[in-house]
C-alpha cells in the first residue's frame, strides 16, 4: 500500500474499487445507512459528499505547508464544515425538494469520518494533483456504494427505481428494506459479496503461482 510513486490512475482506482471507502474500509456508515432508502437520495448525498471531499482535499493539500501540525485536525474540520455549509445552502436554493428529503444529513457530512480520514491520511502529505485524484476516486467509490445500496433498497422496498414503479401494482414491497434494518441487511450482504470477490481473487492468484512454480 505504501507506493510513493505518483500514479494518478492507481490512486483513482484505489478509491473506487480496491480500497472502496464503504465496502472495503467500512467508513462513513452513518449517512450510508440513513439516506440510502431511495436511489435519488443516495445520489444526492453522494454528490454532496463528492463536492465536499474533493474541495477539502484540494484546499488541505494546497495549504499543507502552512498548517501547523498541532492544530491540523481543527483546521481540517473548519475547512470541511465551510464546504458543507456552502453545499447545504446551495442545495436548498437549487434543489429544494432533494434538500427537504435529505434533511439533517447534509450538515452531518461534517462528521463523515471518511472525509476527515482522507485529509489526515492523504491530502496533507501529498501533492495537490494526487490529493485531488485520490479524493475523486474515494468520492466516486462512496457515490457508487451509496447508489448501489439505495437502488437495491428502493427496488426491493418500494418496487421502484427513481420513483418509477418496476413490477406493477401487484408487487408487495418489502417495507423492511427501506427501514433502518434494511440498510444493515443490504450492507451486510454487499460486504459479504465484496469479501468473497477479494478472497476469490487471492485464491486464484495463489493457484496461478503454484501452477507456475510446478516443475514440468
Amino acid at each position: 500500500m505504501s507506493r510513493r510513486k505518483e500514479d494518478p490512475h492507481a490512486e483513482f482506482i484505489k478509491g473506487l474499487w480496491r480500497d472502496n471507502p464503504v465496502f472495503v474500509q467500512v467508513l462513513g456508515m452513518c449517512p450510508m445507512l440513513a439516506v440510502t432508502n431511495s436511489a435519488i437520495n443516495a445520489l444526492a448525498m453522494g454528490g454532496a459528499t463528492f463536492f465536499v471531499l474533493v474541495a477539502s482535499s484540494f484546499l488541505v493539500s494546497s495549504l499543507r505547508q502552512w498548517i501547523p501540525r498541532q492544530v491540523r485536525i481543527s483546521t481540517y474540520i473548519i475547512i470541511i464544515a465551510t464546504f458543507v455549509t456552502v453545499t447545504d445552502f446551495t442545495l436548498e436554493a437549487l434543489a429544494p425538494v432533494v434538500h427537504k428529503e435529505l434533511g439533517a444529513f447534509i450538515p452531518l457530512i461534517v462528521a463523515n469520518c471518511m472525509i476527515l480520514g482522507r485529509q489526515e491520511a492523504f491530502a496533507s502529505r501529498n501533492s495537490v494533483r494526487l490529493a485531488v485524484v485520490d479524493a475523486l476516486g474515494m468520492a466516486s467509490g462512496f457515490l457508487f456504494a451509496l447508489f448501489t445500496l439505495g437502488a437495491v433498497r428502493e427496488i426491493l422496498g418500494e418496487g421502484a427505481l427513481f420513483g418509477v414503479s418496476l413490477f406493477g401494482p401487484d408487487f408487495e414491497p418489502w417495507v423492511i428494506m427501506i427501514l433502518p434494518p434494511g440498510g444493515f441487511l443490504t450492507l451486510g450482504l454487499l460486504l459479504l459479496f465484496f469479501s468473497w470477490l477479494r478472497e476469490r481473487k487471492q485464491r486464484l492468484a495463489i493457484r496461478l503461482e503454484e501452477l507456475e512454480a510446478e516443475p514440468k
Binding site: 492544530v71 481543527s74 483546521t75 473548519i78 475547512i79 465551510t82 455549509t85 456552502v86 445552502f89 446551495t90
Partner: peptide
C-alpha cells in the same frame, strides 16, 4: 492559524 481559518470560513459562509 485557527483565527484566520475561522475568519475566512465565516466570510465564505456569510457570502453563500
Amino acid at each position: 492559524t485557527l483565527s484566520l481559518a475561522g475568519l475566512l470560513s465565516g466570510l465564505i459562509i456569510v457570502l453563500a
